[in-house]
Design a protein around this nucleic acid. Structure first.
Length: 365
DNA sequence: AATTTCCCCAACCGCGAAGTT
DNA sequence: TAACTTCGCGGTTGGGGAAAT
């Protein structure tokens, strides 16, 4: 039969730890090490359950825990890893020495997530929140008439709030709804398709001279962990590079042909620009479609290949070189959150303007 | 100065995977 | 193999401090 119950919950203390309790736990672990959390509290003279002791140790008392603000590099790392791993906080923490999963989770929820939302970026998909740009629904809503479309409040920038432009856009879109429906159904035949249909509609229109306009649609679709599946021959480096959409698709398809990746997967995949375009690392700042716009961080110490990320056991975080040398143009290490956000907003503005070329939009009317 | 609201983060809870008997 | 426990993870909560009114 199984073991005895972990702990009798009756009579065990809960809530904040006192310095005395902390000291008892530290003393015990320094003497005997940790391992059997079930018996540890009793042996250490603590009126706590093992789970509480483990949490206290791993999240607070561990000597290698780094305290204080997250650096820009750490923040960038978290965002990058989150885009790959989702809410796998322990896996993310394994890549950030001295940071706990709980700390990262809290930081994500209280800082990064909010900032991304303010920037108009969906913190789940890491793509621009195109729902905010759903022109038809905006125009049809009473919000438009009553509040003069104060979109900038929601998405943090101005260029898309021109009601006249939106009206024209809606006119265009409604006249093409039938075509759109066809395209949309076609484009979204696979799950996780994150392209916004109206965006597609516009881009298909504005790229009439392009042989394969869909290729140039900067929509985003991220391979999630399950989609990535097992590393092929232990090497996933072929999917760590995100460059300009059209060139990348061919790269992706080529590499998939080499690796035997299912063709349906390669057809659907449209890469996301590097996160350095959010945060402005070197040349990607100026040219989002640059071939150098790789998913890999420009920080030389943070090479986040999918393989290394996915294969890292959370229980034994591999040490990252903490001697960071970065080519990042903007140094956020000592910046305030506002400064970071301001900069990020301008990045997003660039991105979306690039996607929704307003002049071209008007030119098509 | 007092009160209210907001925000952060340490800690708890529940669940699933892995391990043990 | 089944039954059970332990461990670890991710989601959530609530206490306390800071900021706003």
């Amino acid at each position: 039969m199984g073991r005895a119950p972990c702990c009798d919950k009756n009579g065990l203390k809960k809530g904040p730890w006192t310095p005395e309790e902390d000291q008892k736990l530290i003393d015990y672990i320094q003497k005997h090490g940790y391992g059997n959390w079930r018996t540890l509290p009793k042996n250490a003279g603590l009126q706590r359950c093992g789970k509480s002791c483990r949490l206290r140790w791993t999240n607070y008392l561990r000597p290698d825990i780094k305290r204080g603000r997250f650096s820009f590099e750490e923040e960038e790392t978290i965002i990058q890893l989150h885009s790959i791993l989702g809410n796998k906080w322990s896996a993310i923490a394994a890549r950030l020495p001295g940071r706990t999963d709980n700390e990262i989770k809290n930081y994500w929820n209280t800082h990064i997530r909010k900032r991304l939302l303010r920037m108009g970026i969906d913190p789940v998909t890491h793509s621009p929140r195109l729902d905010l740009l759903d022109i038809s629904s905006i125009l049809n809503s009473s919000l438009y008439n009553s509040s003069q479309m104060n979109m900038s409040r929601y998405i943090g920038f101005q260029p898309l709030v021109n009601p006249e432009l939106l009206r024209l856009a809606t006119s265009l879109l409604s006249s093409q709804r039938e075509t759109y429906n066809h395209n949309y159904i076609h484009q979204n035949a696979h799950e996780n398709q994150l392209c916004h249909p109206q965006m597609i509609q516009h881009l298909v229109q504005s790229n009439q001279n392009v042989q394969n306009p869909v290729e140039d649609i900067p929509c985003v679709q991220f391979p999630n962990e399950s989609q990535l599946g097992e590393p092929i021959n232990g090497d996933l480096s072929n999917i760590t590079t995100f460059s300009s959409p059209s060139s990348q698709i061919s790269e992706w398809q080529q590499s998939s042909a080499n690796t035997g990746m299912p063709s349906s997967y390669t057809e659907d995949y449209v890469p996301l620009p590097s996160y350095s375009t959010y945060y402005g690392s070197d040349q990607t700042l100026l040219d989002p479609s640059s071939e150098t716009s790789t998913f890999q961080s420009n920080n030389s110490n943070q090479n986040f290949g999918f393989a290394s990320v996915l294969s890292t056991p959370s229980s034994s975080p591999p040490p990252l070189n903490s001697n960071s040398t970065t080519t990042t143009t903007y140094n956020f290490n000592n910046s305030t959150e506002d400064e970071r956000e301001s900069y990020c907003s301008s990045m997003l503005k660039f991105e979306i303007q690039d996607i929704l070329d307003v002049n071209e939009f008007i030119g098509n009317l």
